[in-house]
């Protein structure tokens, strides 16, 4: 155990953990939104994330012609390119999510098939997407260029406030709160919550179930696409199987916080990001996964619905 790292790097680790955790939060929204309305895990969400990362690479290299060693952009050109990459990544993931809903869920739901069939078809979609990317990229990692110079705003209490980390933290927080407000205040958000509470009653109230479910997949996909963009901004590399570990982590975050619960996903993601970073620093990187799952099991033993599963049930999607 290496506690000495905490004396000089505590706040730096907190900032890294927070940034990683907020990426988990955005991905976990894809799981938690779908679970909220369908009571099913969308196993293809990890590949929806992967599609977003490739869309970001496509914009940043294919469209702008940047290479991994091009000079960083500045000013308006930088803002415009990053915003464009964010929008394309969100759209690519959002549309993929709608396609997954249409192909893997809707037909089966219409025929009243067993829930397990939908689960398996989602896994099938996940494998199709992942293997297609593997074949198209010859299994090789794809790097995105460094469009934004990783300048520092300065050090506060030893933490390096780097521009990419700050961008992820602020943007992800804004996105989460915007989504939370949308779900709780807007008409469509209320319809999503109504479906989540009772599909039958929502139908009787005249809510178009298919439309609400498609919108839910779309919103989950948009959030996952945003996570993909932020991930590429910080880590700058992707691969056909990039979604596996991140998807697993985000799913764990959703369960930890209380799956089906937006605010649960938020706290679960941040808790997981911090836990991973701190355990890797103190215990060693080899203990990171062990620590995370030991904590998850312990939490579920005490609170089977996740940390916030019961406390904020009313805010459920």
């Amino acid at each position: 155990m290496n506690f000495s790292v905490l004396t000089s790097q505590f706040w730096s680790l907190c900032l890294s953990g927070l940034s990683l955790g907020l990426i988990y939060v955005l991905i976990s929204l894809g799981y938690t939104m779908v679970y909220g309305v369908l009571r099913l895990i969308n196993f293809a969400n990890s590949e929806i994330f992967m599609v977003g990362t490739f869309a970001t690479v496509w914009v940043e290299t294919g469209l702008t012609g940047h290479t991994s060693n091009s000079n960083p952009l500045h000013g308006f050109q930088l803002v415009y390119t990053l915003l464009f990459a964010l929008v394309v990544s969100m759209l690519a993931s959002g549309l993929t999510a709608i396609a997954v809903e249409f192909l893997a869920y809707r037909r089966l739901r219409a025929r009243g098939t067993n829930r397990l069939a939908s689960l398996i078809s989602a896994i099938g979609m996940s494998i199709i997407l992942s293997e297609s990317a593997r074949i198209l990229t010859h299994s090789r990692p794809q790097a995105s260029p460094r469009l934004m110079e990783k300048t520092s705003f300065g050090h506060i209490a030893g933490a390096n406030f780097r521009i990419d980390t700050v961008l992820v933290v602020i943007s992800a927080l804004l996105m989460f709160f915007a989504l939370d407000r949308f779900v709780n205040k807007s008409r469509l958000g209320k319809a999503i919550r109504a479906v989540s509470m009772s599909e039958e009653n929502a139908k009787l109230m005249g809510i178009n179930l298919n439309r609400v479910i498609s919108v839910t997949f779309l919103i989950g996909g948009l959030m996952t696409g945003a996570a993909a963009f932020f991930f590429m901004t910080v880590y700058e590399t992707t691969k056909f199987n990039v979604g596996f570990n991140l998807g697993l982590a985000a799913f764990t975050a959703a369960v930890l916080g209380g799956i089906g619960n937006l605010r649960g996903a938020f706290f679960g993601g941040i808790a997981l990001g911090l836990l991973e970073t701190m355990s890797a620093a103190v215990l060693g990187s080899q203990w990171k996964s062990v620590t995370v799952f030991v904590v998850l099991v312990l939490v579920l033993l005490v609170r089977p619905n996740g940390i916030f599963g019961e406390a904020i049930q009313q805010t459920r999607v």
Binding site: V5, Q9, L20, Y235, V242, A281
Partner: peptide, 24 residues
């Protein structure tokens, strides 16, 4: 001054190892 054993996958977050290197 230190050792670490990481299991890298695509998208591994290296920040904890980096922090340890800097602290050491």
């Amino acid at each position: 001054v230190g050792t670490d054993h990481i299991l890298p996958t695509t998208g591994t977050d290296w920040s904890a190892t980096t922090a340890k290197v800097l602290a050491s």
